[in-house]
């Protein structure tokens, strides 16, 4: 992870970049262009909110950024390294080492406890058990769930589940966290708390956040706002009150 505490001031090359990124789906005989030649770049510590109406290509964009899907054309670069020629295994290794994901529907593993869900990425990294335990405890403490480590997902509220998902996304120390509608299944108050948490973690850990949403309230947390419409990206101006939404 990056800086502990305070705002992230580290800026270097692009952490995340896309070049002429396109994604076309076949729908019967028809081609649906979900993304058309998108160029995008985010630096370390950026907090980017991507908004747009339903069907505009937000989730497709996030799937391509998180290298769980491959573009029809163009390139996704992570830390300047192209990903299109990488094998499925190499992409999986890249995700586990570099990217944290937060899903709209939390996507916790139902048979694992909160602590075990958070521990899972560390297990993939084959860290020793004592280190895993320490980092999981610290992360759950950080998201305010230190007393719920043994609870299963079905024993947690929506907000608590999303905080577990955030802890899971951050525990392995990724440089990039990609969140797909992280507040969509939460009430506005809980959603606000989750976004404040993401913002705090962004500041404290200097992690690049890309949050996809159609919720205008989430946009209030952005350092950078990107609008996506009909598969095309446009940068929007950010209010001066950025960072004060929490």
């Amino acid at each position: 992870m990056g800086d502990e505490g305070g705002f992230c001031h580290e800026r270097g090359g692009n952490t995340l970049e896309t070049r002429a990124l396109s994604k076309t789906y076949k729908l019967g005989a028809e081609d649906v262009h979900a993304l058309c030649g998108v160029n995008f770049a985010a630096q370390q510590g950026d907090f980017v909110v991507v908004n747009g109406p339903s069907g505009s290509g937000k989730t497709t964009f996030l799937n391509l950024l998180s290298v769980i899907d491959r573009p029809t054309e163009g390139e996704v670069l992570i830390h300047g390294e192209p990903t299109s020629k990488k094998s499925e295994r190499q992409l999986a290794m890249l995700r586990r080492s570099t990217i944290g994901l937060v899903f709209q529907t939390f996507n916790l593993v139902p048979v694992l406890s909160a602590a075990e869900n958070v521990e899972y990425p560390l297990l993939l990294q084959q860290l020793p058990k004592p280190e895993r335990r320490t980092r999981v405890a610290a992360m759950l403490e950080e998201v305010g769930l230190a007393d719920m480590t043994r609870r299963r997902p079905n024993e947690l509220s929506g907000g608590q589940r999303q905080r577990v998902a955030v802890a899971r996304a951050l525990v392995s120390g990724p440089n990039i966290v990609l969140a797909d509608e992280p507040t969509a299944n939460l009430d506005s108050e809980t959603g606000g708390r989750v976004m404040a948490l993401l913002q705090r973690l962004n500041e404290e850990h200097c992690v690049t956040f890309v949050v996809v949403t159609h919720d205008p309230a989430v946009s209030a947390y952005a350092q950078r706002k990107i609008r996506i419409l009909d598969g095309k990206l446009s940068e929007e101006a950010v209010d001066v009150a950025v960072g004060s939404a929490s």
Partner: peptide, 16 residues
């Protein structure tokens, strides 16, 4: 299937 998708998205390889 969704759980498997999540595990794979988190970086679990096909072999794992």
């Amino acid at each position: 299937t969704r759980e498997i998708g999540t595990l794979r998205a988190l970086g679990t390889t096909q072999g794992e």
